[in-house]
């Protein structure tokens, strides 16, 4: 079951990974040629003219974007977690529900296999997909970034690997939600909706102290590169809360699926 599930999802995994890598490679290759003394000056002027709140929302108040590693830690990172988040949401929304939506679940339920075995194989496959996705992107980014003059290996790995927590959270929240639904279309829209809502909550919440609480409850805060850049380590509270949410969603998924009806 696991092998088959992996095969089904492999194409999509490769498409997402290669597309994202291609975009990064394009930016990595042209970025240095765009940066010279003149553009550095105009970038500086542009940054000064922008409100502090907007700069903070993209980490540009603490990191300069004169180098490609600087770009990666700001806009590049936002791009990575947003696309990775959407990929995880699609994976989570469809991996379990697709069988019901396409009615192939009738085939599986007729086999001597328990419902928890079905959930386990799907969950493990999803987690492996996320791990492979992150590994491909991390290796690709390392190749493209390690020559950057301000490259910091420890910071790079922390920034590259912390999204695994975010992706898994989104994946398991979406899987859990999908146990309440019948059609993947609805689950996918809801999953992607959650990703965008979280993303905008983080952006908006970063614009002022009075609304900072909005940012704190955003899923994207669980993979904040800002904290890593500022403190050079991972925010442990978010890590444990994140793991807690994942465990709660896993338990919820098993319980719901055990009693779900296939009509």
């Amino acid at each position: 079951m696991f092998k088959r599930e992996f095969k089904i999802n492999f194409k999509s995994l490769m498409m997402w990974s290669i597309t994202l890598l291609a975009i990064y490679f394009l930016i990595f290759s042209i970025y240095p040629s765009l940066i010279n003394e003149e553009t550095k000056e105009s970038l500086k002027l542009m940054m000064e003219s922008m409100p502090q709140e907007i700069l903070a929302a993209f980490n540009m108040d603490i990191v300069g974007i004169e180098t490609v590693f600087g770009w990666f830690k700001t806009e590049g990172y936002v791009f990575l977690v947003l696309l990775g988040g959407i990929y995880s949401a699609i994976l989570g929304s469809t991996i379990l529900l697709k069988e019901e939506s396409e009615k192939t679940i009738e085939f599986l339920y007729a086999k001597p296999v328990s419902r928890s075995q079905i959930v386990t194989s799907k969950i493990l496959c999803g987690m492996l997909n996320i791990l492979i996705f992150t590994t491909i992107i991390t290796i690709g980014n390392w190749i493209g970034l390690h020559t950057s003059e301000d490259f910091d290996l420890k910071q790079f790995f922390m920034i590259s690997l912390i999204p695994i927590l975010l992706y898994n959270m989104i994946f398991f929240i979406c899987i859990f939600i999908s146990t309440f639904l019948k059609k993947t279309k609805k689950a996918m829209s809801l999953g992607i909706g959650i990703v965008f809502l979280s993303y905008f909550m983080q952006i908006i919440g970063g614009m002022g102290e009075s609304i900072e609480w909005i940012k704190k409850i955003s899923l994207f805060e669980f993979a904040s590169s800002r904290y890593i850049v500022l403190h050079n380590h991972i925010h442990m509270t978010y890590l444990w809360v994140g793991i807690g949410i994942i465990i709660a969603c896993i338990i919820g998924t098993y319980c719901r699926y055990e009693h779900k009806e296939f009509k």
Partner: peptide, 17 residues
Amino acid sequence: YKLKEEIGYLPSEIHLY
């Protein structure tokens, strides 16, 4: 669930991969 080893099922509409 292991009891399904002994059961064969033919649905009215077949949905396969």
